[in-house]
């Protein structure tokens, strides 16, 4: 039997990281899943809302106001609020994550579509483009840089928020933060829980930038 209550074993046991790469990988995959679902669903909803906001202008105010108020709710509180209704399920996590993507995505999508110059649209109409074709072939591509800029911000935000779903038993890499706190501030876990999502966010941000460059070769000037 190991000596009970030996003082904290000297030094920080960094080898924990190397010994648990499979767990870390598993958590990373979970992190990516949670982020990915939120982005896909959030983007789909945001596109619908944006198109609505552009066709019916007076909806824009209420949509941004509502998503803006959601933005002021601390995410952990939102997860707690949802938990009694949807349980400690992936649905609870995703509802929260999706809601937080909406403000940025709608705002940027609308701004992007609004930014398409009127004379370009006029010219397309002159060439006999239908409303749908105009949207898909002219407006959307031209708005893409701003829309993707929104996606980048929303993705980075979502990766950060996923860590908080650790409070409702998910968390991806964020679960190591809670674990580390329980284990008397076990530094290697805290570091993995903190640095891991940061790296993930930066990588996804960079990847989306590359996607944007590939999709819109005519636009060298990326919107911040």
């Amino acid at each position: 039997m190991s000596p009970v209550l030996a003082q904290a074993s000297g030094g920080i046991r960094w080898s924990w990281i190397g010994d648990n790469l499979d767990d870390i990988w598993e958590a990373t995959v979970e992190h990516l899943w949670l982020t990915g679902i939120a982005m896909v669903v959030g983007f789909a909803i945001a596109m619908v809302l944006s198109v609505l906001a552009i066709r019916y202008r007076r909806l824009y105010g209420p949509i941004t106001a509502t998503t803006g108020v959601i933005f002021t709710i601390p995410s952990f509180a939102l997860f707690f609020v949802l938990a009694p209704f949807t349980g400690l399920t992936v649905l609870t996590a995703e509802i929260g994550l999706v809601l937080y993507t909406l403000l940025v995505l709608v705002r940027n999508t609308v701004a992007g579509l609004d930014g398409v110059p009127e004379d370009v649209k006029e010219a397309a109409r002159g060439m006999g483009y239908t409303r749908n074709r105009l949207f898909l072939e002219i407006e959307l591509p031209l708005a893409l840089p701003v829309i993707i800029a929104g996606l980048r911000i929303a993705t980075v935000t979502t990766v950060g928020l996923v860590t908080i779903t650790a409070l409702i038993t998910f968390g991806g890499l964020g679960r190591f933060i809670l674990d580390g706190l329980q284990q008397n501030l076990f530094v290697p876990k805290l570091v993995v829980g903190a640095v891991g999502p940061t790296v993930l966010a930066l990588v996804l941000d960079g990847a989306l930038l590359l996607v944007q460059r590939a999709l819109t070769p005519w636009s060298r000037r990326a919107a911040a």
Binding site: S2, V4, W16, N20, Q183
Partner: peptide
Amino acid sequence: LTELNAKVEIDQED
């Protein structure tokens, strides 16, 4: 139990 707890809380094992 006390011993097991110590392993996690003090020796920081998983």
